[in-house]
Design a protein around this nucleic acid. Sequence first.
DNA 1: ACCTGAACACCGTTCAAGT
DNA 2: ACCTGAACACCGTTCAAGT
Lengths: 184, 184
Amino acid sequence: MMRSDARDNRARIVAAATDIIEHEGTMASLNEIAKRAGVGPGTLYRHFPTRDALLAEVLVAWVERVEDAADATSIAEKGDLVDWLEQLAGISNAYRGLAASIASVAGDETSPLRSAHQATLDANDRVFDKARAAGLTDAPVDAGTVARLVTGVAMATEQANLTHQQTRTMLEVILEGLLASARP
Amino acid sequence: MMRSDARDNRARIVAAATDIIEHEGTMASLNEIAKRAGVGPGTLYRHFPTRDALLAEVLVAWVERVEDAADATSIAEKGDLVDWLEQLAGISNAYRGLAASIASVAGDETSPLRSAHQATLDANDRVFDKARAAGLTDAPVDAGTVARLVTGVAMATEQANLTHQQTRTMLEVILEGLLASARP
DNA sequence: ACCTGAACACCGTTCAAGT
DNA sequence: ACCTGAACACCGTTCAAGT
């Protein structure tokens, strides 16, 4: 059982982090977050030994957005799938630096962001299940490949300040490729 | 005419930067580069007011590699094009952080890295010209779209420590999509 | 004209000292 | 058990003072 002051501090750190990361991105200063939360930097480190551990907490709400989006999406034609990929890329760019943070999970099995990452893979799988049900494709599409491609698009979009149309064009190419290579 | 001591210092800064960036990536400490070059930090800033200005100088040699690779590549079948994209992605990952630095050029018309970026776009165009000559595709493929996609792949590869095979799979999907959407 | 290097305002991270 | 906040070793960047 956590001491009540510790529990309070933890909650205030998460609240401050959510607020600041939303505005400044995933690379926001940890000292600034601690200050905003009204705790010493050591307290932040005690509760969250790494930046990703803190980010994982902030992303709990974010993961729900991904899952809701996946479940709310209905897939009837190819354009719907592009819309979905666009949504996925957009959500990955909810905060500055988020796409890069997500990408780094894939290469680190022990990352605290692991479950958040897995949830998005699963959500993506469910959407492509719908696509198969709608007869858009008959072969399996690897969710990992899709995730890596969309993450790459999201990173490029953020880094190069791409227009909506440029990003969509990239996703159209990718979807075309996914469906083409899925057909034997 | 630059004073000879200034010219010497400039050359030593570029040499030190090349050396250090090769090992530590594009985000290497500028103070460390200055120290290695045997100059004060102010001298580095006098010659290169921004990190990208310094990087542009370091990348002169790098651009030649891209152009040589493009001109040396012969394209006869689809696999050759995947090989080319793989080479392009590999070159973009020559240094850590390079893919991101390249990506940021696209969103900044005044970047000192502009000519380096343009050179890679042109090189890519020449390769796809060969593909058209070989009858692999008949419609134009936008070099900008290709560059953005490959940059995204390169960033994801670096950030997620992807395997060779994972990267190649992404590029295969992209090429499939490029050729498919090029066909009317 | 060019260079030096101390100085400034920041980072992330740690850890003795407190309660 | 938990917290504070000064301290450390770094950043990038500037600018008075030197030659």
